[in-house]
Amino acid sequence: MQYTFNWAIIFSGEYGRWFLDGLATTLEMSGISIVLALVLGTFLTVLRLSRITPLVWFAVSYIEFFRNTPLMVQIFFWYFGSDPILPGFFKAWLYRQNIEFATAIIALSTYTAAFIAEELRSGILSIPKTQLEASRATGLSFLQAMAYVILPQAFRIIIPPLISQFLNLIKNSSLAMTIGVMELTYMARQVEAHTFHGFEAFTVSTLIYLSLSLLVSFLITQYNRRFLRIGSAR
């Protein structure tokens, strides 16, 4: 049987909207996850560099665990398996959300945080020790020195690897369809199921992911070009 290409059908009727809805969900899910991953990743890094043994051990185990197990398994764990270990108040909160959406965000941000923590740690280690010394010598506490002196410099250094973590996160977010989050890939699948035009449906979703990634990396480099002009030179 001959396959007839039909691009028009993808954008006719409801289908165009489905793609847009899927894209919106992907963006929202990735956006929230990125912010949470950055916060959590920074927190893990500070623990890891704190020199307080139990905290260091916690951070190291966290990072190794999350980096070395498949994201898909982690998503399933949060969705199907985490019930017995989650505290009551958290579960209560979770059930008031869109549970699939919230679960995907938890999985994506806890996973990405581990990678961000690694990048950030190497960024911090590349800042001369004398910066920490100079700031501590003025009376800043360890956390203040981190917050105002070390981390701002480290973040500037690790912007390229951070961008690729962000892009990975956007791409990884397509796994959320496996637990029924109606994001871009899920919607492409729906369009395919209704139209039997899988080639067109997945081509469109592929192009959307591609443009999204290119756009994000373009915006971040533009932003940095301005932001970094002088401050990072040493």
């Binding site: 004398t130 910066q131 010394e133 100079a134 701002p152 410099q153 401050g231 990072s232 030179a233 040493r234």
Partner: peptide, 11 residues
């Protein structure tokens, strides 16, 4: 304290 290498915050 003032160090040999200044150690100002470059950012």
């Amino acid at each position: 304290i003032v160090f040999q290498q200044f150690n100002l915050y470059p950012h």
